[in-house]
Design a binder for these strands. Structure first.
Length: 107
DNA sequence: CTGGTGACCATTA
DNA sequence: TTAATGGCCACCA
């Protein structure tokens, strides 16, 4: 592919994919990484999310880890924000976990 | 280029 | 269940 891709473009690509996640659905870092062409680089997705600017039109809260859980710690401010946003989309937490059978993207 | 870090993942104990 | 380890690769100083 084009090697003129700038490093930041990778983030843009990841954010764009996340932006395609419909309301009421969730996706894992691994899923997004695979779609973005980063087969085994789920960490990059997380890194891109942490680098995400405030006020961005990206539903980053719909991105969770492989266990269907929020990767952040409970003492982290964003943990509560993400949980609140997800619940706002009719997504139900089952003991701090999300059921992919019901809310999994592309599923 | 080197070293450190990370909103991950899977395995092992 | 939690904790530690290795692997993967991009970003930053």
């Amino acid at each position: 592919m084009d090697k003129s891709s700038k490093p930041s473009e990778l983030y843009q690509r990841i954010w764009k994919i996340i932006n395609q996640i419909p309301e009421g659905k969730v996706a894992t870092y691994g899923q997004i990484a695979r779609i973005a062409g980063l087969e085994s680089n789920a960490r990059i997705v997380g890194y891109a999310l942490h680098s995400l600017p405030e006020g961005a039109d990206v539903p980053w809260h719909r991105v969770i880890n492989s266990g269907g859980r929020i990767s952040l710690r409970k003492d982290n401010e964003y943990y509560h924000i993400q949980k609140a946003l997800l619940e706002n989309e009719n997504i139900v937490f089952n003991n701090e976990k999300i059921d992919f059978k019901l809310y999994g993207w592309l599923l």
